Every structure is written in structure tokens, then in C-alpha cells.
Simulated assay, not measured.
Amino acid sequence: MDLVAALAIGAALVAAATAVGLVWRARQGRAVGGSGERVRPASLGVEAGRFGERATLVQFSTEFCSRCPAAARLLGGIADETPGARHVEVDLTHRADLARRFDVTQTPTTLVVDADGIVRTRIGGAPRADVVRARLDEVLGRQHVDIR
């Protein structure tokens, strides 16, 4: 193989890897519509009183997730500043049944659940504060103003 062909192949591999990385990064923290499934605290292995009166941010984590502690701090802070909202963290390390049931393929994964326990939004990857607040406002029926 001559030098020009080798350089062309190398450049094509770098371009392909960069494209894949950019697509992956763009999908992180992106919110998609919820499944509409009803979630009960008992089905997650948490106490009934742990869900919020108006909304719950359910975070699926694992012991080895490096982004999960930061996500928990973010979600906990947002829940604390939102009346009627709570944050619940569910460790999937020893609960593969929950990972399958909720189709969790990456951690953290966050579900925004309304007062009736209906999954309204799903956020895959590290959540972004603006996205969480906007989706939580939708669930609570509040106007969301994004100031940047």
C-alpha cells in the first residue's frame, strides 16, 4: 500500500470516528416522549412516600456509573427547588429485571413521572438542567422560560 492510500484510509477512519462521536454526544441528555406506562414506587423497590405529590424524577444508576453522582446532585437540586417534586435514585446494579422492564441501556437514565405515576419523559445519558426543568414544567403545567 502506498503512502497516499494509507493516509486516505487514516483520514477516513478519523472522520468516521468523529461523526460517530458527534452523533453520540448530541443524543446525550436528550429528552424524548415517555412511554405512558404507569410506574408505582413498589415496582421500583422504593417506599410509597418517596414519590412526589406532583412529579417525580426517577434516575436509574449503577455502582460503576461515573456520571451518576453528578446527575443525582443535579436532579436532587431541581426537585428541591420545585414544590411537589421529588428525586428518586434506583440502583440497577443488582436489578437487571428493572433494566429490562424500563429498557435502560445506559446510565444515568431519567424518567419524568407525573402525579399519577405516568412516564411523561425519558432522558438518556447525563441530564441537562435546562432540559429537565422544561420537561418538569410541562408535567406541572407551568410556563417554561429559557433564559440564556
Rank of each mutant, 00 (worst) to 15 (best):
37 E>G: 07
49 G>M: 01
39 V>S: 00
82 T>V: 03
61 S>Y: 01
121 T>A: 13
50 R>W: 13
42 A>Q: 09
66 S>Q: 10
46 V>A: 04
60 F>E: 03
116 D>Q: 09
135 R>H: 12
62 T>D: 08
103 D>K: 03
42 A>R: 08
48 A>D: 14
54 R>Q: 13
41 P>V: 10
33 G>Y: 05
124 G>T: 00
31 A>K: 11
127 P>F: 01
20 V>G: 14
75 L>A: 04
142 R>Q: 06
80 D>A: 15
97 D>P: 01
65 C>F: 02
60 F>M: 07
112 V>M: 05
91 D>I: 00
77 G>S: 08
110 T>H: 01
49 G>F: 02
19 A>W: 12
126 A>T: 07
97 D>T: 07
77 G>V: 12
43 S>Q: 14
35 S>C: 09
57 L>F: 08
110 T>R: 06
21 G>K: 03
56 T>F: 04
26 A>Y: 08
70 A>Q: 12
69 P>C: 05
24 W>P: 00
19 A>H: 06
81 E>S: 10
118 I>R: 13
136 L>F: 05
127 P>H: 02
37 E>S: 10
87 H>D: 13
136 L>Y: 08
127 P>M: 02
65 C>Q: 05
95 R>S: 01
75 L>F: 09
97 D>I: 03
86 R>D: 13
94 H>L: 14
140 L>N: 15
117 G>W: 00
37 E>N: 07
25 R>G: 12
78 I>F: 05
80 D>R: 13
100 R>S: 09
51 F>V: 08
75 L>S: 04
24 W>L: 15
89 E>L: 05
104 V>I: 11
